[in-house]
Amino acid sequence: MKKLRFFCAFWLLGLISGQAAATLNVFATVPEWAALVKEIGADKVAVYSATSAMQDPHRIDAKPSLLAQARGAQLVVANGGELEIGWLPLVLRDSGNAAIQPGRPGYFEAAVHVAMRDVPSVLDRANGDVHAGGNPHIHLDPRNLLKVGEALTARMAELDPANAEAYRAAFKSFAGKLQAAIGRWEGEAASLRGIPVLVQHSSFVYLAAWLGLKETATLEPRPGVEPGSAHLASILERQKVVPARMVLRAPYQNAAASQWIAAKAGIPVVVLPFTVGGTPEAANLFALFDETIARLLKASR
C-alpha cells in the first residue's frame, strides 16, 4: 500500500513537472493559429491544436481532452469573432486555470486585431448562425496573418520574457518571408481576379476579397443551415444568368450539395485546404496558400 502510494505520488509529480518544464504551453483553437504560434515560437513553445482541419470549428463539444489541455495551458490562442462560442467558454470556465480566462494576458483573440468583413447590420437568428462581430474566417487573407502575428508575438513576449527576443526575431523573419510570398501569390493569382465562384459556406470571404474572386451564391441558404433542394435549384437557375466557374468547399464540409450543383452546372468542385492540414500538401501556412492558389488556378483553366 505504502509502495503504491509512493508510486502514485511520483507519477503525478512526473506528470506535473513534465508539463511545466521547458516551454510555453499554448492551446490554439484552430490549426491556423497553432501554425502561427509555431512560426513565432519554434522550439520554445508546445502547441496543442484543439481542432483539426477535418472538423467544423463551429461544432465542437467541450470534451474532456480539451479540458485537460486547457488546464495546463499558459496561453490560449482563440480565433474569436464568436467562432468558438459553443465550446470555448465552457472549456475555459471548467479548466480551473486562472491564467487563460478572458481578459487575462493568457487569453488571446485573433479576430480583434483585424478588420472584420460582413458585419451584420441586423442580428436575427432567422438569418441563420450569424456572428455579431462579422465573418470569423479571417485567416485566408494572408495580410491578416501579419497583423495577428504581430499582436501574438507581443503577447508571447509578455508571457515569456526570457524568450521575447527569440519570438520577435522569428516573427520578423516570418513576416519578411510572408510579405515576399504575398507578392508572389498576388502575381500568380492575377488571372483569378473577377472570376465568379459558388461557395458552400461563407468560409472564403477573406480569400475572395484578397484575390478578387466574385462570390455569386452560397450553397447554404443561411450560414450554418444545410443546403436544401429548393435553394440549390434556385442557384442553378441563377447559374444560367451569372455562370460561376467553380464551387469552393472546405474539407470538413458536406460534399453532397457541392457535387450535385457541380454536376448539374458542369463546373468543377474545388476542395480548398481551408486551413493548415486540410490537404496533405497544406502542411504549413505558406503551403496552405500555395496549395489554395494552385487548386484555384487549375480549376480556372
Binding site: L15, S65, L67, A68, R71, G96
Partner: peptide, 12 residues
Amino acid sequence: ARWLAPTPIFME
C-alpha cells in the same frame, strides 16, 4: 468543489 488534475488525460 471540483479539482481538475494537471494530467494529459482528463481526471476530475
